[in-house]
Write a protein that binds this DNA or RNA. Sequence first.
RNA 1: GGUGCCAUACCCAAGCGGUAAGGGAACGGUCUGCAAAACCGUGAUGCAUCGGUUCGAAUCCGAUUGGCACCUCCA
Length: 471
Amino acid sequence: MKISLYNTMGRTIQEFKPINEDSVGFYACGPTVYNYAHIGNLRTFIFEDILKRELTHSGYNVNHVMNITDVGHLTGDGDDGDDKLAKTAKETGKSAMEIAKFYTAAFKKDFNALNMIEPNTWCKATDHISDMIKLIQRLEKGGHTYQSGGNVYFSIDTFPEYGKLASLKMDDLQVAVRDDVSEDLNKKNPKDFVLWFTNSKFGEQQMMWDSPWGRGYPGWHIECSAMSMKYLGESFDIHTGGVDAIPVHHTNEIAQAEAATNHKWVNYWIHGEFLLTDSGKMSKSKGEFLTLQLLIDKGYDPMDYRYFVLGGHYRTQIKFSFDTLDIARKNRLSIVSRIQEMLDNGAKKIEITSENATSLAQEFDESCASNLNMPKALAVLWKTLKSDKISDSEKYSLVLYFDQVLGLRFEEVKKSEKEELSDELESLLIERTQAKKNRDFGRADEIRDELDKLGYVVKDTAKGPVLSKKL
RNA sequence: GGUGCCAUACCCAAGCGGUAAGGGAACGGUCUGCAAAACCGUGAUGCAUCGGUUCGAAUCCGAUUGGCACCUCCA
């Protein structure tokens, strides 16, 4: 099946054609590990996971690389900033390495909890300093750099295509610095950016390395260019990130990579939109943000959040609210209980062969392949669950097939087991059944209320009463 | 100041020129001692507003209104 994707480079939906027939090189901008990831960050990673799953589902062998930024990510503009990790370290009294290690582990925990498939390669910035230095040297030889005020800068005037991803024009760039951003007088062009720092206003950094330009540390943008080329080659297929990366980070990455190699670097740039709250964007710098753990603490399953994210297209902003998350949970649990019911009725995984089932599979695949239209894909899932034209086994098999892309852990749904009820619950249930038999409905309803208080709901099914935990 | 994006029923949300997917809520029904669950059914003559293009527009163009993001760090 042909996959079409919205390419930020060109701003159009394009048919995906990889450089090599069967394999895809895929670089995803990873987290900066100076704090917990918030659920807005995680939305982007879920979108990337869906993209990766869809490519795999369509038969491509995906080589997925994700970086971990553990140095050099400034909090402010140019020289005016401070390394985020160093800043957090200063505030907490821990070493930058300790901070990075701690939040990397926290990130991976969230990553796994959301059922995201791990990259083939995780790469840490601090493990690749020499690769970055080599790339800067290459740029230096090509005449794309200059030194000023102790730092090495990239000169955007040496790269005529600068800004093509963000549709920036050179004229705009000259006046692009806003009033509220202090100008770095070392720069020839206000949009030039630092490749290597030796001179920080913030005194001794914890993490410094020797380089041809002196002891210091790399700029943020050079990390991704250097690491992606190391693992995926000097041209590869897909590079993803959040929309915020378009005008600066990815724009600068392109400048570095293409100025160094003199040829096109990445074919498809795919960006995920933001998750918003009532007051706008969720942001780490504002201090308050929701983490996955917080949702878990409130009783949500990580899959509830994943379902919530799948409910909106990756290129539209979605507004987070607990009301909407509740609906996502309800939907998801409804699907799970339908699956369980199928299994209880003896449904098994089988080959999908009937015409009706095949056409549902086709419809699902087309939705995913059409620029990852997951809301539509979920509609096909519901259509499948409600269809009376296919058998339970076909239904179940389709659900598992869909879940290769959805990643909602439907394969983990098991037959309902006779739950181990406490003696108290057991006897209440028996008493209620007896009361009903004796047409003592007053007592029966009393018991139902008692069970409700204990957090259980009674369902009177054809096979007798079933007790399930209240949601 | 500059640059983009968005506006679809009570809520969330697809749709990208051919006559409005899906889910939730609500309402009606079947079932039930009554409920819950489940199942069946109902729901926008209209897609912010006003113009325009077209045989045909939620979809294209222009204007207006409202919301958001980016041009510092951010997913």
